[in-house]
Design a protein around this nucleic acid. Structure first.
Lengths: 110, 110
DNA sequence: TTGATCTACAACCATTTGGTTGTAGATTAG
DNA sequence: CTAATCTACAACCAAATGGTTGTAGATCAA
């Protein structure tokens, strides 16, 4: 079946992390701008602690990293995770294409 | 921020569905072969009902469809969902590339 | 018809998830 | 030094998740 370069639990954490609109929004923000955890927290109608948890989920999924700067914790993108998730979906689509091609071949033969 | 062609809850369900190794395996199987729900259930060390639930999750996420054939329920891939998830990650990477390009420009100017 | 197979779905349970509040430690500003 | 800011983390809670067993309805095979 190949498809899996990466461990199951790693992908679990990755897709799990992306399965929340707030977290996807954090990823989108961090992709373009520079944000501290409290900077992010200011953007959402939830507590600082809640946002802190979301960032922690993204961190465990290797989608972001944190870097201490003074008393702030800057949140930066960690593209690796994004690429891994995308790669799996690419693989899926490739498998699909191959299957379609194979069926075409069979039809051409018959 | 653009990024979202699709509703938040739709993406929630999509990534949520992909955040489980059994369900990813079901997707991979269904991409290449033909499986009924019980055919899938035979592949995993869990109850039929559990697999049934996994298929239901994939169905709600528009990753598979079911088609009744006799007393069996055939599970087929529904590529739409896969493509949607991939598209979002593509958009993310594009945003990242644009940001890198912009920084390069600034450095070139300075 | 009868029995086996496949499915649907409810009820239940333990764990995880996404939120809260509260407390305490660093760091910065005045 | 003192006060404000930013973070970390614990404790708690309701709801969702991933599993189970059990029951019942269709469909097929003999």
């Amino acid at each position: 079946m190949v498809v899996d370069q990466v461990s199951d639990s790693e992908l679990d954490r990755l897709f799990q992390a992306l399965a929340d609109a707030t977290r996807r929004d954090i990823v989108a923000r961090v992709l373009t701008g520079e944000y501290s955890v409290s900077g992010l927290a200011a953007e959402y109608a939830m507590s600082f602690a809640a946002v802190q948890k979301h960032v922690a989920v993204l961190e465990r999924a290797s989608l972001v990293t944190k870097e201490k700067r003074g008393r702030e914790q800057m949140v930066r993108i960690h593209l690796e995770g994004l690429r891994r998730a995308r790669r799996l979906l690419d693989d899926y689509e490739e498998i699909w294409q191959q299957r379609v091609a194979r069926i075409d071949d069979i039809l051409a033969e018959g």
